[in-house]
Design a protein around this nucleic acid. Structure first.
Lengths: 200, 200
DNA sequence: AACCGTCTGGGACAACTGACCCAGTTTGAG
DNA sequence: CTCAAACTGGGTCAGTTGTCCCAGACGGTT
């Protein structure tokens, strides 16, 4: 077994845990399974982490950060609002198709965080970050297209999230990509009707 | 410990499992926890069910049936399409608020079914039933309001599910009922724009 | 080369879980 | 009342899991 610094081991174990959860589900993510996946000795687990809980915390943080990064530049300005929304939603969808495991993991983490008192607030934190990103995206689109939103942007942000989460959840079940994209396009057109001409 | 017929025990254990999952999450739903919740002796578990798997199957079936029943008469025809959609979505929402545990359980079951090879297809089955209900609802509304849908009803049904699932998922995280209802109302207005006047 | 902190190997351990068992008690049909 | 079927009590059992332990191997510094 190669000798690896504790710092690198932490990273390896976290990303191994990510892969295991994405592939086999949360329940299968045992310390042994994670170490095997990482190619690490079992002893290194509690050498690097005080507990499994600590690894899960690290995993959650990293996953949410990666998510924020991936979607920070997800806004796409096109000709008009409808096109911009469509392009942005399609870009989001591309990130889902590119790495469906991430969505599985996010869903599993959310589900788990809702029940585990030790992770109370994690789901809310996840959701708040998600909401902020959606709001920023909508504001950028409005600014880029020279319009204002007829509804409070907070409400539109929630609708945006409802659409992305809902479409993703449905796809995780039936893997119907065509239907997912069609739904996203339709919602893009719908949400665009909330844009009004900006006062000069 | 009171003596109860095996048939009644089955029912007790299933509803106890439902309560445990809703309250403490799927992982905590051990045979012992379920029996304690039901006030049943541990031995009755494997007297009534061949395995835990069998109880979960029964639980899934009953939960989906109850869901179908609860929403079978969930369609509400009002003055126009927008109002009808709003009333129908609000009625759906009432069922969620009345029993948030059911949604938690459904989400947990779905999540679990996606990963457990032994329950392969259960999530799809759940989703298919859900889809059929949505389609019927939309067709009833169209008929009741004397309109036709401009989009294939299958696509609208998916959008309907995306909205309900998305709103529910968001609410499970932040419990913001006002925002949930506002989002549903907004989506009702949006979906109504897909209705065209029926050809006489 | 000698040394000391860092990491690994190969276990061990108690707790918990699903499943099983069977003698004994209760119940209801005859 | 009798008696077989139905149900319960109080265990056992093997497997898994999170956590822990410590002797030894490694590797960079002196």
């Amino acid at each position: 077994m190669a000798r690896v610094s504790a710092e690198d081991r932490r990273r390896q174990l976290v990303s191994a845990a990510f892969r295991v959860i994405g592939r086999d589900g949360f329940a299968q993510a045992t310390t042994r399974a994670i170490c095997t996946e990482a190619g690490a000795p079992l002893a290194s687990f509690h050498y690097c982490f005080a507990s499994k809980q600590e690894l899960l915390g690290e995993l959650t943080t990293q996953t949410l950060d990666a998510l924020a990064d991936a979607r920070a530049d997800g806004t796409h300005i096109r000709g008009d609002v409808a096109e911009s929304l469509r392009a942005t939603l399609r870009f989001y969808w591309q990130t889902v198709e590119d790495d469906p495991g991430r969505e599985s993991v996010l869903m599993a983490l959310t589900q788990h965080a809702l029940n585990d008192p030790g992770l109370a607030g994690v789901a809310e934190q996840h959701y708040t970050a998600y909401h902020r990103t959606a709001r920023e995206t909508l504001e950028e689109i409005a600014a880029g297209c020279g319009v204002t939103w007829d509804l409070p942007v907070e409400q539109l942000a929630r609708m945006f999230i409802v659409v992305t989460d809902g479409v993703t959840l449905a796809w995780l079940v039936d893997h119907d990509s065509a239907a997912a994209v069609a739904a996203l396009d339709a919602f893009a057109g719908q949400l665009a009707t909330f844009a009004g001409r900006s006062e000069p």
